[in-house]
Structures are given as C-alpha cells and as structure tokens.
C-alpha cells in the first residue's frame, strides 16, 4: 500500500461511486483511498466491471464521487461547478480514448489544434508551432493533413495522444488506450506514452488488461469489485506482473 506523499497530484479518500439504475443501486466503487504522484506512469488494472473506468472518470473530472473526496491538482472536484470542472479538464488534463474519438471531419492538425483553440491562449503561429512539435514527437509529421479515416488505428491513437498532450497538461487520462489496437501497435502507443512521460514529466494514468503493458508502469493499482486490491510502486520503474496477486 502506498503512503501519503507531498507531491501527490491525485488524491482520493473514502471515495464511493454508486450508480442508480431506476431503484437499483449499483456500487461501482466501494471506498477508495489512493494517491498518485506527479510524473507517475500509473496503470489501473483489474477485471472487467471492477470499476476502472469509473475511477478514471472521477480522476478525469468528468464525473463526481457519491461520497469521499477527489483532489486533482489541488482542486476538490466535488466542490467545483460544471463549468469549472470543464475548465480544469481543459487546462490541466488530457484525454486519450479507447476509440480514439477524433472529430471525423477535421484533419489530424485541426484535431490536435482544437484544445488550443478552446484555451484561446496562443496565436495562430504559436499554435502551429506547438502542433507541429507534438506531431513530430508522435511521429506524424507527414500525416498532419490526413483525416482520421485516412489513418490507421495506431496513427489515429497517436493523433489522440498528440491532442491530449498539446496543451501540456499535468495529467493525461487514458481508459484502455490499446483495447482497439493490435498488441504490437498497442505497445508502440504505450512506448510513446512512456517516452512523453519521461521527456515532459507528464503524469499518465491509464487502465489496461494487457499484462505486458502493466509491466511498463512504475505505479500499479489493481481494482477488484470496486476496491483497491493492491497498489505497488516499482523502484526501478518496473513492476512484477500483478497476476500473482490476483485470485
């Protein structure tokens, strides 16, 4: 189990999330205490239905906890308005989705530029430079003006990674980013994420089923049935496969 740390960028305490389906209550998270430090390359593992997505949604400020507190980059998300949460996502978070979720009618460049437009901080030239830089780091310089449907799955996810990182967020969230990719491409994406994590110091929090992916993480949280089953920190940045801990 991890101990509280000063540079924890995400801190959850006593978090419960109960979905209501009519009169039926579905407890997805049953009391989570968790800290993730800035710069972590953190993986959330666990079987299907264990609450990974729910947990990422709470950390990603797209949903709020039923009880308990979720602190993200110093903000208690439970106290923020819808608009403030949106602002928080825009300024401090990046998202990578399982199905890439690019805007189909915009080309790679426009998709990546979009969060910058929403921020409205940079002028056109600055935006261009920023987009070109990040596109270079994801290796898509030659594909900037391709539309998503002209790109392969791996390329699309690279665009998504670029879009998540273009605003230089503190934390990037990724819910099963490799689920829709073949394993080789998936590993390339994880390698890319890892590279960016190391180069930029960006905190990555992602979920996966893939044991090989898990071994890349320097922080591993395993969920089972809405509870944290194990939480490990690898000294060398590498974790043992958590399979042994699973029942």
């Amino acid at each position: 189990m991890s101990t509280p740390s000063r540079d924890a960028i995400v801190r959850l305490s006593g978090v419960q999330k109960i979905y209501k389906l009519g009169k039926v209550e579905v407890p997805a998270l049953k009391g989570i205490d968790l800290e993730i430090n800035a710069g972590d390359f953190a993986v959330i593992a666990g079987p299907s239905g264990s609450g990974k997505t729910t947990l990422l949604n709470l950390i990603g400020c797209v949903d709020v906890a039923t009880t308990g507190t979720v602190m993200v980059d110093g903000h208690d998300t439970g106290t923020l308005s819808e608009s403030a949460l949106t602002r928080l996502r825009l300024e401090h978070l990046g998202f990578i989705f399982q199905s890439f979720n690019l805007v189909a009618v915009l080309d790679a460049f426009d998709n990546v530029e979009f969060p910058l437009l929403l921020q409205g901080k940079l002028n056109k030239a600055e935006r261009r430079e920023r987009v070109e830089d990040i596109m270079a780091s994801v290796g898509l310089t030659d594909y900037m003006h391709h539309r998503p449907n002209e790109l392969s799955g791996g390329q699309r996810q690279r665009v998504a990674v670029a879009r998540a990182l273009v605003t230089k967020p503190r934390i990037v969230m990724a819910d099963e980013p490799t689920a829709n990719l073949d394993s080789q491409t998936g590993h390339q994406i994880i390698d890319l994420m890892k590279k960016l994590n190391q180069e930029e110091g960006t905190t990555f929090i992602f979920s996966t089923h893939d044991p090989k992916v898990m071994s890349q993480a320097d922080r591993s949280i395993e969920l089972i049935d809405g509870l944290v089953a194990s939480s490990e920190v690898a000294d060398d940045g590498r974790l043992d496969t958590p399979q042994t801990a699973l029942v």
Binding site: R89, F95, V103, P115
Partner: peptide
Amino acid sequence: REIGTLRAIGMQRRH
C-alpha cells in the same frame, strides 16, 4: 460521442 469528447477535452456548454 463527438460532442461528449469535445466536452471532455474542455469545451464549455456555451461553446
């Protein structure tokens, strides 16, 4: 989904 995505990456309702 597209709108949800844009909302997730920080687009305000008024936008």
